[in-house]
């Protein structure tokens, strides 16, 4: 269970090469899917284009449920990239994991809190940026002391809590899924009896993990838009 990470230090920064690999793989897969789906764009969509347009509309629906489209339209790309990236990332660790020299190479990048917290921090930072950009600094600052100035410490805590929960929720779900899959796979390898006993729970858990992965991608995007709306909207 306790595999090591292939660490590498460059310019004083420590890289987990497994993360680097999986982030790259995820990005490439997302990009290839998106480009293949939009290679032959037509007014009458077919196949993959239909699927991607459905995703577009889905994300649009998420944004629209939080803010009006005039403000939220600029977050469409962010939402699309987030939902596709996180979904693909969640799926990658499901079929197998690769361990070389007791070092874990192939896994979901979202099973690492560094990755999920980076995404969460980026989202929260963006929400602050757009809060200032769209409403002005005064309105933005007023958000911290409304409805009562006494809430200011809570508001500050809320920002960090948001970041942490957003990142750790995703990490926890995916990491737990992978741990259980690894346990099941471990018992699969123990012998005939173990294989027979573990095969059905493994399949069931993989199916459930697909569901969890999709739900988590949706929740991450949804909460991103909720935080955005909270900072961007005028009536707060």
């Amino acid at each position: 269970m306790h595999h090591e990470a292939p660490l590498y230090t460059l310019f004083g920064l420590t890289f987990n090469l497994a993360n680097v690999l999986m982030i790259t793989v995820t990005s490439v897969i997302v990009f290839v899917i998106a480009v293949l789906a939009t290679r032959n764009l037509a007014m009458k969509p077919t196949g993959m284009q239909n699927f991607l347009e459905w995703v577009m509309d889905f994300v649009k629906g998420i944004i629209k449920s939080n803010m009006d489209w005039k403000t939220g339209g600029r977050f469409h790309m962010l939402g699309m990239t987030l939902i596709m990236y996180i979904f693909v990332a969640n799926m990658l660790g499901l079929p197998f994991s690769v361990v070389i020299d007791n070092k874990l190479w192939w896994k979901s990048p979202t099973a690492d809190p560094v990755v999920t917290l980076t995404l969460a921090t980026m989202v929260v930072a963006l929400s602050h940026y757009y809060g200032i950009k769209l409403n002005g600094f005064k309105e933005y600052a007023k958000g911290f002391v409304s409805p009562m100035p006494i809430l200011f410490p809570l508001k500050i805590i809320e920002e960090f809590a948001n970041t942490l929960t957003l990142g750790l929720r995703l990490y926890g779900n995916i990491f737990a899924g992978e741990i259980l899959l690894a346990l099941l796979a471990g018992s699969l390898a123990t012998g005939v009896g173990g294989t027979i006993a573990a095969i059905i729970p493994t399949i069931a858990w993989q199916g459930f993990s697909i569901f969890v992965g999709a739900i988590q991608a949706f929740i991450f995007t949804m909460l991103t838009m909720v935080y955005m709306a909270h900072k961007v909207s005028h009536d707060h």
């Binding site: 590498y8 230090t9 460059l10 920064l13 420590t14 890289f15 987990n16 993360n19 680097v20 982030i23 790259t24 990005s27 997302v30 990009f31 998106a34 480009v35 789906a37 939009t38 991607l52 577009m56 469409h76 790309m77 962010l78 699309m80 990239t81 596709m84 990236y85 990048p109 690492d112 560094v114 990755v115 980076t118 995404l119 980026m122």
Partner: peptide
Amino acid sequence: GDIAFQLVMFLLLMFLLRKYAF
């Protein structure tokens, strides 16, 4: 390193997706 790489890759991916797909 991971943080920087994840950030850069995500932003790059978003940019590329915007330009070539979405």
